[in-house]
Computed example of a mutant assay.
Amino acid sequence: MRKWKRVETADGPRFRSALAEHEAALLQNLVTSMIGMLEERESSSPADELEAITGMRTGNSSPPQDETLKRLLPDFYRPQTDHPAGSNTAESLNSALRSLHEPEIIDAKRQAAQRLLDTIPTGGGKFELAEDDAHAWASAVNDVRLALGTMLDVGPNGPDALPPDHPMAGHLDVYQWLTVLQEYLILGLMGKSR
């Protein structure tokens, strides 16, 4: 993975980089897997009579059971304090908001991921992105990082490294690579170099 180079053109900024063949294949696989997870969640939405009548799409009203999907599709509202009456109000609010907005969120994540897949160089190599595509890459890479970080239990206290014989050691290396890829792209979008 090369750093991203921002090039100003008459049509707006362009972002250039290059991926090795194995990096492009890895990124394609990760993003495709994430799309599959999102589509599985979307297809598990119950049939809704309101949708049939109004055409307004609704999604699941309950949060995902899978921790990775919970990270990609978190609750909308978290109370700042525990209410003595319990958390029914927060749960009801989250249920309603999730049902109304989850389909749009899944669509946005899928569209960003698909733009990445459409613009990644097959077999690796040099490539160039328009600004909208670069934003889609930043979003899709962030989603993959969130999913992988959840699986690895990455948090403020690590893990920063895993023993080489740990079954997830290679996954942590991929997570760190995605972090660098995203950081350099964000810096390019901000017009900064590192």
Results as ranks from 00 to 15, higher is better:
G155N: 13
G125I: 02
A10S: 12
T81Q: 13
M34D: 09
Q114M: 04
K5E: 13
K126Y: 03
S99E: 14
R57S: 11
N88E: 15
E102F: 05
T68E: 14
D11V: 13
L189Y: 03
H135Y: 07
G125P: 04
N157H: 14
M37S: 12
D143Y: 09
R16N: 01
I120N: 03
A140V: 04
L116Y: 04
H101E: 00
Q176V: 02
N94Q: 09
M190V: 12
K5P: 03
L146R: 09
H166I: 14
E23R: 03
L19A: 00
R41A: 13
F127A: 11
A147T: 06
L148T: 09
G125V: 06
R57H: 08
L187D: 15
R14Q: 05
V141K: 02
E40D: 12
T122K: 10
R98V: 00
M34H: 10
E40C: 09
L93Y: 09
L27A: 00
P156Y: 15
S99M: 13
S139G: 03
D133E: 15
D143W: 07
Q65E: 15
I105C: 01
L97F: 02
A134K: 09
H101V: 08
G170D: 02
A20M: 06
P46H: 11
P84T: 10
F76Y: 08
